[in-house]
Design a protein around this nucleic acid. Structure first.
Lengths: 134, 134
DNA sequence: TTGCAGATGTTATAGCATTACACAACAATG
DNA sequence: CATTGTTGTGTAATGCTATAACATCTGCAA
């Protein structure tokens, strides 16, 4: 189901990734938990620990502005400095894209300021094309 | 204390803005509440309602990646499409800046995709120059 | 065998945000 | 004046998000 050849995930990590990969939109940690209760999940921490690892591996992204998570849809994800997300406030769909120009400018600012950049969050909120008309 | 000539704020809004303007770093809603208990604040909602209004007026920004709020430090804030924040993970300091190139590129993507852009979040996490050495 | 590192399970708790309901102040309107 | 609508307020309860603390287990390397 994954677009990546990901290294050996544990059972919990596999289940959490599967839940995200099988979802059309982003999921909150607690809704992941609910989907996995049938597989033996009982506590939030089981989800959060798996998510931490999956994010570290680059297989999952966290959407800060909605406290939710998505499986990475972009195979080249790792090669880009920063990824941007467009989140539709009506249907919840998420588009993932990379813009090297944006990355360059933000990295340029950081360099000029002496800011040791660790992670960049770029999230656009609004209405996707389909929901725009409706 | 404000750099803006802001329209008539209510008592609660004034108090919340004052708390943020008088703080060196960002504050969470609950820490604002604690600072204002002496002024009669008792419930989170009093803070959140004031914050909503202040954000709407452009006097306060929400930092999505740390669930906190800052008073706007940038007088020209309104004239720029999007504002970026650099948050130091060590000392908590926040730098606010606008980059028109970044704004243009993100707006360009939105236009090309037919995405009706409402709000843009750009947050850089890392270490500020001062904390970099330490 | 011992020891370590990583993953797991469980309970409890901390931190962030909103719903629901009641009331007050005020302006605009008839 | 009475009415109506809008905005802000106060309060209690609740819901959602995330982590701390502690015990256990598994696999692997020394």
């Amino acid at each position: 189901m994954s677009a990546h050849a990901h290294p050996d995930l544990t059972r919990n990590q596999t289940l959490v990734f599967g839940a995200l990969a099988g979802s059309v939109g982003p999921l909150s940690a607690y809704s992941i938990l609910d989907r996995l209760r049938g597989q033996g999940f009982r506590a939030p921490l089981q989800v959060y620990r798996a998510l931490d690892k999956l994010i570290e591996l680059g297989l999952v992204h966290r959407l800060e502005s909605i406290n939710a998570f998505v499986a990475c849809r972009q195979p080249e994800c790792e090669t880009h400095g920063s990824i941007a997300f467009a989140i539709c406030d009506r249907c919840g769909s998420v588009s993932e894209f990379a813009d090297d120009g944006v990355t360059r400018r933000l990295e340029g600012w950081a360099k000029a300021e002496g800011f040791d950049l660790n992670k960049t969050t770029i999230e656009l909120r609004g209405r996707c094309r389909a929901c725009r008309v409706a």
